[in-house]
């Protein structure tokens, strides 16, 4: 990653313009040619630094209901339980963590009823209690990483 990549990634995290030539707007602001920007973005995507370039939506405002769940899964059952949990497309993130509750996942569904049903199904399939911790107040969601030449 060189200075040009860093400038590009910092800009892309804030978002491109909604004009017909967003990368031309970006080129003018960064002082890098549009051609270079396009080529670099594809290279950064190929190298896996960019997970996705696209719409970043606000899921509550999109009408979605979500929650963070945790389960205490016995070591030997982790693969099987993970498979059951991950089978839902509504489960977007799932991590094993170093806590008594060792499996943590987020569920985002199109209604509160769907959300409840999924949690109940996971509990009844696995026989393990699912604790649900929905948001009461959002203070911050800003997944932008300040990049500099140390990286």
């Amino acid at each position: 990653m060189d200075q040009v990549d860093i400038k590009i990634l910092n800009y892309l995290q804030e978002g491109i313009t909604l004009s017909p030539r967003p990368f031309l707007d970006m080129a003018r602001e960064l002082g890098i040619s549009e051609e270079t920007i396009l080529a670099r973005i594809e290279a950064l995507r190929d190298r896996g630094l960019i997970r996705r370039l696209g719409g970043v939506f606000d899921s509550p405002r999109m009408g979605m209901k979500s929650t963070l769940c945790a389960m205490e899964v016995p070591e030997a059952r982790i693969p099987e339980v993970a498979q059951q949990v991950n089978a839902y497309r509504e489960v977007t993130h799932n991590y094993l963590r170093n806590d008594v509750y060792n499996m943590w996942f987020t569920v985002t569904a199109s209604s509160g009823e769907d959300l409840e049903r999924i949690l109940q199904e996971i509990e009844s399939y696995t026989g393990i209690k699912v604790i649900s911790m929905p948001v009461r107040q959002r203070y911050k969601i800003k997944v932008a990483f300040a990049l500099n030449d140390e990286t």
Binding site: I16, I50, L53, F57
Partner: peptide
């Protein structure tokens, strides 16, 4: 509803 069109790293 749309926060931005941008990159997720």
């Amino acid at each position: 509803m749309l926060k931005r069109i941008g990159a997720v790293l």
